[in-house]
């Protein structure tokens, strides 16, 4: 649609970028949920499981954290397709970013669980609470406070990582921006606009992370 001119052209660009921004948010939220879903049992097994389980999870976390997310996406999207497992690009992006993120998320959850002093869980056990009651009533409420600031920072990282999904043709903002550049040759304007869109989403999150950090800091010093 490069034949559009003047104001129409700019409106067209804005409309396309808005569509892409929405897909970006979908991929980010999808992979965040996926990460947390995978990470929760991993973190629990890490703090409760036997040495073999711990070692396996350790390897999982180390491998996923040491390999670039782009490489992981390519393995899932292009690699698995040759084995007959053909995933859509958005599905592949959510699984790839989610699996990658689960390694970071598991570490965040584990740190949150381990931040609750052992004495408290032992005291709760001594008072006759069951294992899951101890987790739900004693560990979880405190762990959540510890986990929220790093989890917000992790979400910002995840949002930025979604841009890499353009390389597996997921129609998020980066991919649509590249197509727009091919149509209009307005690359500086378009890529700057894309950065602005990312900033509009990430700045409130950066603020939130800072606020949560200060609040958790106050909570810790009160303890």
């Amino acid at each position: 649609m490069a034949h559009e001119q003047g104001i129409d052209l700019y409106l067209y660009i804005i409309r396309v970028l808005a569509t892409g921004a929405w897909v970006t948010i979908e991929v980010a939220v999808g992979s965040l949920l996926f990460s947390m879903l995978v990470a929760a049992p991993l973190a629990n097994a890490q703090s409760l499981g036997g040495p073999t389980v711990k070692a396996i999870i350790r390897v999982y976390v180390e491998v996923f954290r040491a390999v670039p997310v782009l490489t992981q996406l390519f393995i899932i999207y292009f690699g698995l397709a040759t084995l007959g497992l053909k995933l859509g690009s958005i599905t592949a992006a959510i699984i790839g970013l989610g699996l990658n993120g689960s390694a970071y998320c598991a570490e965040i959850f584990r740190a949150g669980i381990e931040a609750v002093p052992r004495g408290q869980t032992e005291a709760a056990r001594a008072l006759g609470l069951r294992r899951w009651q101890v987790f739900r009533l004693v560990v979880l409420p405190q762990a959540v406070r510890m986990v929220l600031p790093p989890l917000t920072n992790f979400s910002i990282q995840l949002l930025k990582n979604t841009s890499v999904a353009s390389a597996v043709a997921a129609p998020e903002i980066m991919l649509l921006a590249r197509n727009l550049v091919n149509e209009t040759f307005l690359s500086p304007q378009i890529y700057l606009s894309v950065c602005l869109v990312y900033l509009c989403i990430s700045l409130p999150m950066i603020r939130l992370a800072g606020w949560l950090e200060r609040r958790t800091g106050a909570f810790e010093s009160r303890q």
Partner: peptide
Amino acid sequence: RGTPVLAQLFFIYFGLAE
């Protein structure tokens, strides 16, 4: 810190060239 490194690279490589 608020934008992806890929967007920054595209701006530097394609945008500045333009």
